[in-house]
Design a protein around this nucleic acid. Structure first.
Length: 468
RNA sequence: GGCCCGUUCGUCUAUCGGUUAGGACACCAGAUUUUCAUUCUGGUAAGAGGGGUUCGACUCCCCUACGGGCUACCA
């Protein structure tokens, strides 16, 4: 069997979209599952859309997510000569030609004819080396693929969708090399996948319509017998309504669209990432893995190793999946509880030595890491609230204070004893004193277990807060 | 407009011709909890529509509807 080699091939035009991360994940899972190789290829052939920092961002995002790269990054912009060599081969064999039409001319064609396509029917009436064989070849020009036959079926064998058939007359004479000498996606992609011996092309469904073009390119390069297998992934859809998930939708619904916070160098906009919003990478990976793929069992929680073990292309669904952030949040809750050590590590910054007990007190109450601070900051910051007290409450707190002063309780059960003793002394029910006690200590009427709270605060601080 | 892909609870999905159509999230109710949350138990909720094929269709085929993608010297 052929060795598995897959690639994740993003374009460095900005931050990595969450859907792109899922594509990377599926590639990675297949690579690891089959003992293959995961390659990162940067498709930076469009110099106008290049965004500085994007490549670093992509690498950092994959690293955060736990997706390891075995080879690369390979940058297409550094391989211009290679593509030139291959497009020359096509030219020589009559499968490509020079075209001189200007953008304006082509726009005019499209405007006057809504079904205009640069193809076998129209190419002879356009401005190119086929219609004007004697014309001098001089810049600027583009090189177009000469789709060889009309009206033959081109079948794309897709691992997810089965056989998808197109008619070759629907495939147009795509530009392979742009006037700046850079290849287009189609050329660079096919040449690189061949040269890098890619076994499986796993990419988004938006590429399905150009797959027949790619199949034809393999054929006319003479590489049909080593052509990679294709798997076109269903798209991630917006949570309400329809359409593919965009940054706008995410902003509107109030959740991140990027793995990491992204500072856009052009717009100066800052988009908060999943990491900074308090999501754990394990949760995001687990959530993403199950958006479009399922293990066929009822298991929901997967470590990366378990995903690798369970993964198969055959179990990827065909339909687009709506992005439900609530489910991601549920996964995050699960992983906060699961990854105790790691999370406690984050909490040390806020709670110091109390990080561990604070974690225990709040772990069932939080969704995000930042919730530990929001719900637990009273552990380190004294509440600034005023509590109106009646006579019996004043007596109770006086008694409680002296009890604590005398005994200096250390653990929750001891505090509980104090609380009840003071109630008996004051002739009140301890249950009725809990709310004012909580407010005094935490500044809030709800929160984690009161006795545990007192244990974390310590008897000195409890006294302090009652006295104030 | 043209081409291609898709369609099971609100959402993610299981089912690969015969099931009371299962699970998870969300939601609702009850129980536990000296608060709130957690936890536990239970519940509401689905095969787009129409034709076939078949003893039998969510499952196979066709049509329709709806949704999506592509249609650049962007990827």
């Amino acid at each position: 069997m052929q060795k598995v080699r897959v690639r994740f091939a993003p374009s460095p035009t900005g931050a990595l979209h969450i859907g792109g991360l899922r594509t990377a994940l599926y590639n990675y899972l297949l690579a690891r599952k089959s003992g293959g190789t995961m390659i990162l290829r940067i498709e930076d052939t469009d110099q106008n859309r290049f965004v500085p920092g994007a490549e670093e961002y992509i690498i950092e995002s994959l690293k955060w997510a736990g997706i390891q790269i075995d080879e690369g990054p390979v940058r297409q912009s550094e391989r211009k000569e290679i593509y030139k060599e291959y497009v020359d081969q096509l030219l020589k064999n009559g499968y490509a030609y020079y075209a001189f039409d200007t953008t304006e001319e082509l726009e005019a064609q499209r405007k006057s004819n809504s079904t205009f396509q640069y193809d076998a029917k129209s190419r002879m009436s356009l401005n190119n080396s086929l219609s004007r064989p004697d014309a001098e070849i001089k810049a600027p020009y583009v090189i177009r693929f000469k789709v060889p036959q009309e009206n033959v079926n081109v079948t794309v064998n897709d691992l997810i969708r089965g056989e998808v058939t197109f008619n070759s007359s629907q495939v147009d004479d795509k530009v392979l090399m742009k006037s700046d000498g850079m290849p287009t996606y189609h050329l660079a992609n096919v040449v690189d996948d061949h040269l890098m011996e890619i076994s499986h092309v796993i990419r988004g469904e938006e590429w399905l319509p150009s797959a027949p073009l790619h199949v034809l390119l393999y054929k006319y390069f003479g590489w049909a017998d080593t052509m990679p297998r294709f798997a076109h992934l269903p798209l991630l859809l917006k949570p309400d309504g329809n359409g593919k998930l965009s940054k706008r939708d995410a902003d509107k619904a109030g959740f991140p669209i990027f793995p990491l916070t992204w500072n856009d160098p052009n717009t100066k906009e800052v988009a908060i990432g999943y990491r900074e919003a308090g999501y754990l990478p394990e949760a995001i990976i687990n959530f993403l893995a199950l958006l479009g793929w399922n293990p066929g069992t009822e298991q929901e929680l997967f470590t990366m190793d378990e995903l690798i073990e369970a993964f198969s292309l055959e179990r990827i669904g065909k339909a687009g999946a709506k992005f439900d952030i609530l489910k991601a949040q549920w996964f995050n809750q699960q992983y906060i509880k699961k990854n105790k050590e790691e999370v406690v590590g984050y909490l040390v910054e806020w709670f110091g030595d109390n990080a561990k007990p604070v974690f225990e007190a709040l772990k069932d109450r939080v969704t995000f890491i930042k919730d530990f601070w929001e719900q637990g900051k009273f552990f380190v910051e004294r509440p600034g609230v005023k509590v109106e007290m009646n006579e019996s409450q004043t007596t109770y707190f006086a008694n409680l204070s002296s009890c604590i002063e005398k005994e200096h309780p250390k653990i929750a059960p001891e505090f509980k004893l104090m609380v009840e003793e003071a109630a008996t002394q004051s002739g009140v029910k301890s249950g009725q004193m809990m709310k004012p006690l909580r407010t005094l200590l935490t500044g809030s009427t709800s929160g984690p277990d009161l006795m545990a709270t007192m244990e974390i605060l310590g008897s000195n601080e409890v006294l302090n807060r009652i006295k104030r």
